[in-house]
Write a protein that binds this DNA or RNA. Structure first.
Length: 260
DNA sequence: ATGGTCGTTTGACGA
């Protein structure tokens, strides 16, 4: 199963690039973030014509997450199921695809360490961990993927010094990733690549992509059995090139489970 | 040192 996460930064603007990319890379499961669409406006037909089912959890204007699959799309569920109030933002969508429980996540940015949005980010990550613990087991086949807005370690940012005191690198949010790891969900990219400066996001401003100034904040977290059967993981930098790219590149994992 | 570019939108704001 080829599973992909891609923050498309407006599916309206990006639809043609996304469908062309699908035809080239032929993912089995494509998780999208920042569709910036209402559910009524989601282009299910465009994906159906390529042979894919799709589910979307959107609110229009901001946020919005989707799962596009050609290997089944069952038990679709938006938001957290943790007994608390609904998340006011459309940031997480679950589905089961060929026996794998998949979550497409758009973790809050946080904005600044002294901003209320940062508190929301940490709480959101706690809710994700609680949702996993309540509704799944580490022995399940699980992929929690998306734009985490967290660079896991120093290799994942272009200039650690300039990021000091900022979101994306702070210890409390990295601790949340660590907690997910202790539960069983770990970054499959680091199972296959040790190198620094392999990024998935580059600011549009100041030619940062061409200067290779980015961050690796788009992650595929796999449960132990998924990690064991992941053959390769790569970031498709080419998708960041050309006209009207998203500021994020897709991250691709090939998970070769015995039964799918 | 500062600000730079996009996408939502037509005035700022979020990233």
């Amino acid at each position: 199963m080829r599973i992909v996460t891609w923050n498309v930064n407006s599916l309206n603007v990006r639809l043609e690039r996304v469908t062309e990319w699908i035809e080239t890379l032929r993912p089995d499961v494509l998780c999208l973030q920042e569709t910036k669409l209402s559910n009524d406006d989601f282009p299910h037909d465009a994906f159906a014509s390529l042979g894919y089912e799709s589910a979307h959890h959107g609110q229009g204007q901001w946020n919005g997450v989707a799962i596009v699959s050609r290997v089944g799309l069952d038990d679709v569920r938006p938001d957290f199921a943790d007994g608390r109030e609904p998340d006011p933002d459309a940031r997480i969508l679950w589905a089961t695809c060929s026996g794998v429980r998949v979550a497409s996540c758009y973790v809050p940015n946080g904005r600044a360490l002294d901003d209320d949005h940062y508190t929301y980010k940490l709480d959101w990550l706690d809710r994700l961990a609680n949702d996993l613990d309540t509704n799944t087991s580490p022995t399940d086949d699980i992929c929690v993927v998306g734009d985490f807005n967290i660079a896991p370690d120093a290799r994942d940012v272009y200039d650690s010094d300039s990021h000091a005191g900022s979101t994306h690198v702070s210890q409390p949010e990295r601790d949340r990733l660590e907690t997910l790891g202790e539960w069983g969900m770990a970054d499959v990219f680091r199972d296959h690549h040790d190198a620094a400066e392999l990024y998935s996001w580059w600011d549009y401003r100041d030619g940062n992509f061409h200067k290779r100034k980015g961050m690796r904040i788009d992650l595929i977290l796999g449960s132990p059995n998924v990690r064991e059967h992941t053959a390769r993981v790569f970031i498709d930098r080419n998708a960041r090139k050309g006209s009207q790219p998203s500021d994020h590149a897709p991250v691709v994992a090939d998970v070769l489970l015995p039964n799918n």
